[in-house]
Simulated scan of single mutants.
Amino acid sequence: MRASGWAAWIAGLALMCAALPAPAAHAVYAGRIGGSDITFVIESRNAVQRAVYFYDRYRTPIRLKPAFLHQSRDFGIDELDAAGMPVARLRFDVASFHRSAPRLTGTWTDYRSGRSLPLVLELVAYLDSDGAWPAGRHPLLQAASTERFYFRVPMARDHAAVEAIEVVDKATGRARQTLALPQPGCNRGMETVQVVLERGLTQLRMEQTAHCPGALFEWDPAAERFEDRLR
């Protein structure tokens, strides 16, 4: 192969590698902020942390602002309100979101009042490209929700193809439906399921691309359930 051919091949390989998603891992925790039970999920990718959590009493996902993990101690990540504005800070004494640190401690501080509460998290599950700990499928909380429902995507390893979406009732914490996808879809972690209001009806969407078949489910008020609109 000529030098110019080698250069073109290397450049093409570099572009292909750049297009591939970077390795990521998801850690799922159960814990408490003050006296309130919470469920907390954090994604680690290229030293960037993205997280979502909810209070188990209300089960409405709360987004956190992506943060660059430049140090393992005294690491903070901002909680966002519905408008995307920082309203509180979750600070971790030691930020090791891995199986090697099954228990995390820190504080939650409200920006408006300055009130701080203790934060404690216990690792429930860990998913990366090698598989899941403990072994099996674990529901990954989605950041998007509706007034009545929140959503989970069962995963056996990080960013495996999505085969189903679980619809969970916020009021009871019980699964309302399991939506089987006609074709396995691309996994985008906590942002896999998007909620859209279309013609006054709630839709659940998974992005369709050249490599992802996508999915579309719409709420049927008469049947009181989500129906597949791509079949």
Rank of each mutant, 00 (worst) to 15 (best):
D56C: 07
D56I: 04
R57T: 13
Y58S: 11
R59S: 06
R59I: 01
R59Y: 06
T60P: 00
T60Q: 12
T60Y: 06
P61H: 07
P61G: 07
P61R: 06
I62E: 08
I62S: 07
I62A: 08
I62H: 07
R63P: 00
L64K: 03
L64C: 10
L64P: 03
L64E: 08
K65A: 11
P66V: 04
P66K: 12
P66N: 10
P66H: 10
A67I: 06
A67H: 01
A67G: 04
F68M: 03
F68V: 03
L69I: 04
L69E: 12
L69G: 04
L69W: 02
L69V: 08
H70Q: 08
H70I: 05
Q71H: 13
Q71N: 12
Q71G: 08
S72Q: 13
S72G: 03
S72A: 10
S72N: 05
S72Y: 05
R73W: 11
R73K: 14
R73S: 14
D74C: 04
D74Q: 12
F75V: 04
F75Q: 08
G76C: 05
G76R: 11
G76P: 02
G76D: 11
G76S: 15
I77F: 01
D78H: 11
D78R: 05
E79R: 03
L80G: 09
D81V: 00
D81Q: 06
A82Q: 13
A82G: 03
A82V: 13
A82E: 15
A82N: 12
A83S: 14
A83K: 14
A83T: 13
A83H: 09
A83P: 03
A83F: 07
G84C: 05
G84Y: 06
G84F: 08
G84E: 05
G84N: 05
G84P: 04
M85R: 15
M85H: 13
M85L: 13
M85V: 14
P86G: 09
V87Q: 11
V87M: 06
V87E: 09
V87A: 04
A88T: 09
A88N: 07
R89F: 01
R89N: 12
R89Q: 15
L90V: 00
R91T: 09
R91I: 00
R91N: 08
R91L: 00
F92V: 07
F92P: 01
F92I: 09
D93A: 13
D93Y: 02
D93G: 10
D93E: 15
V94F: 07
V94Q: 15
V94Y: 12
V94H: 11
V94G: 03
V94A: 09
A95W: 07
A95E: 10
